[in-house]
């Protein structure tokens, strides 16, 4: 674990760059993490990120199947919004741990 400065604020991250303390997250940090993943966040992106954060707060493990059944976004659009490794990328931007799911 190490500390780095994101959008002017010190943030704890692990070796893969996932934030380890969700309380440090804010939208400016999210925007900066998205920029590092070559993404510009639209309102749709934010809806998905908020959904992931809600699931995290409720301690629900994330999977692609659950995303598809979320009613927030379907799997096809999820891949369009976050084209490269969507679940990992979206979780990183959302400031939550990397999902451990295989499906």
């Amino acid at each position: 674990m190490s500390e780095r400065i994101i959008a002017g604020a010190p943030v704890n991250v692990n070796e893969e760059g996932f934030m380890t303390d969700f309380r440090q997250w804010n939208q400016t940090i999210g925007t900066e993490l998205a920029r590092e993943a070559d993404l510009t966040l639209s309102p749709r992106h934010w809806q998905v990120i908020e959904y992931l954060q809600t699931e995290y707060r409720n301690e629900v493990p994330l999977s692609i199947r659950k995303i598809g059944k979320s009613g927030v976004v379907d799997i096809k659009e999820f891949y369009q919004l976050f084209p490269n490794a969507p679940l990992k990328t979206a979780a990183k931007i959302a400031g939550i741990p990397k999902p451990a799911s295989c499906i």
Partner: peptide, 14 residues
Amino acid sequence: DMPEVLEFLDILKA
């Protein structure tokens, strides 16, 4: 949380 075969095909396709 493993889907049935048909649902899994839909997931793969999407």
